[in-house]
């Protein structure tokens, strides 16, 4: 097993654990503005994905990501299947040559592209896109412009996703089930953006463990990429 493959298997398991822990919180968020199934769907789907990737004979990164995505597609009965799972399958070929800064950026961009294409959502619609767009843009910029190490860049991306989650609270939903509520969706945090943040936080944890950890994680408050403000979870 390659180290990269091992890391991706560990990441899927970590995401599954986290989403099980957050199951009731995500369901509460989804009860307020959706159909109350996000916590259960994500926990069940990622648990199945973790089982499936653990059984792979040759867990190279592309195969692990593709298997996780396909499992989500068949296990999650709702929009999360195509959005989280289908996009993983679609973006998985970007990791054919393993995980480097370059392939990680390509993977993130392709994943985002598929989520936006499939869900037809833009920033400001109060969806997972509100967390993903700032995260992917920050990751790309940190790697390509600021020349940061991938793990440090991912750390900044997670911070950006956290701000995206906060941004979903005071805006009105224009996509997804919450859009049926109109103005009543204002004041509630989007469950999809929230689970996207949790997934990214787990990726960062695993990447920090497996990757070459930067000497010092960047201080978001003083960073040129992410200006002022504290990132709050929850």
């Amino acid at each position: 097993m390659s180290d990269d493959g091992e890391a991706v298997v560990a990441a899927v398991a970590a995401v599954a654990d986290r989403l099980e822990t957050e199951r009731s919180h995500l369901t509460d968020l989804d009860s307020a503005i959706g159909d109350a199934d996000h916590g259960g769907n994500m926990a069940r789907g990622w648990a199945a994905a973790a089982e499936a990737v653990a059984e792979l004979d040759e867990p190279e990164p592309m195969a692990v990501v593709k298997t996780a995505g396909k499992t989500l597609l068949s296990e999650v009965g709702g929009a999360s299947g195509p959005l989280y799972g289908g996009s993983l399958v679609f973006a998985s070929p970007e990791l054919e040559d393993g995980i480097t800064a370059e392939t990680a950026v390509a993977f993130a961009e392709t994943y985002l592209e598929k989520v936006q294409d499939r869900g037809d959502a833009r920033v400001g619609d109060k969806t997972m896109v509100d967390a993903l767009v700032p995260a992917v843009h920050t990751f790309k910029k940190s790697v390509e412009v600021d020349d940061m190490e991938p793990v440090a860049a991912l750390s900044k991306a997670v911070a950006a996703a956290g701000r995206g989650v906060d941004f979903t609270v005071p805006i009105r939903a224009s996509k997804g089930r919450a859009s049926y509520l109109g103005w009543r969706s204002v004041g509630h945090q989007d469950p999809g953006a929230t689970s996207t943040l949790y997934i990214m936080e787990e990726l960062l944890d695993v990447a920090t463990e497996y990757g070459e950890a930067p000497e010092e994680l960047p201080d978001h408050a003083e960073s040129p990429t992410i200006p002022d403000g504290e990132v709050t979870e929850d």
Partner: peptide, 10 residues
């Protein structure tokens, strides 16, 4: 959703 609940599965 394949689990007895509401939803759709590809």
């Amino acid at each position: 959703d394949g689990q007895g609940g509401f939803g759709t599965v590809a």
